[in-house]
Amino acid sequence: MSTATETWVAVCQVADILPNTGVCALVDGRHVAIFRVGAEAFYAIDNIDPKSGASVLSRGLVGNLGERVVVASPLYKNHFDLKTGECLELPACSVGVHPVKVEGSQVLVSV
């Protein structure tokens, strides 16, 4: 749900993100990973892997663990829920989530 205080930043075109992959963008000084799941679902989480401090989550493998849509960190293989940011193996290492929307052919994120 949008609020009056949200500032939306265009990060890329829809076509720039292949289905079931992610990209990284710098939004207001923050590293954000934007994922496209299937043809039309988009999610945005912090891109920094909490265990390593590296900006790599956008390079992780997208999939499902049960009902959850997740990305597996390419470094330590921890799974992050794309809806909540929760790290399934180490909840203390969860990441932030950000609103994402599509307007026309543009993907926009708010941090």
Rank of each mutant, 00 (worst) to 15 (best):
M1A: 04
T3A: 02
T3R: 13
A4L: 15
A4V: 12
A4E: 13
T5F: 14
T5W: 12
E6N: 08
E6W: 04
V9N: 11
A10F: 01
V11D: 09
C12F: 02
C12A: 13
A15E: 13
A15C: 12
A15F: 03
D16V: 00
L18Y: 01
P19K: 00
V23L: 15
C24F: 05
A25G: 05
A25S: 13
A25V: 04
L26M: 14
V27W: 08
R30C: 12
R30P: 09
H31F: 10
V32D: 12
A33D: 12
A33I: 11
I34Q: 08
F35L: 13
F35A: 06
F35G: 04
G38D: 05
G38K: 02
A39P: 07
E40R: 09
A41W: 09
Y43E: 12
A44G: 07
A44I: 08
D49A: 03
D49G: 03
S52H: 04
S52I: 06
G53I: 05
V56Q: 11
L57F: 08
R59T: 02
R59E: 15
G60A: 02
V62M: 13
N64S: 08
L65Q: 08
L65C: 06
L65T: 01
G66H: 11
E67I: 04
R68V: 07
V69W: 07
V69T: 14
V69P: 11
V70H: 06
V70I: 15
V71S: 02
S73K: 06
Y76M: 15
K77Y: 05
N78G: 02
N78S: 06
H79L: 15
F80E: 11
K83Y: 05
K83V: 09
T84W: 11
T84S: 15
T84D: 10
G85I: 07
E86S: 03
L88A: 03
L88G: 02
L90G: 00
C93V: 00
V95T: 06
V95P: 15
V95M: 14
V97M: 13
H98L: 12
P99A: 00
V102T: 06
G104M: 10
S105I: 05
S105E: 14
S105H: 03
Q106W: 05
V109L: 10
S110Q: 04
V111D: 09
V111I: 14
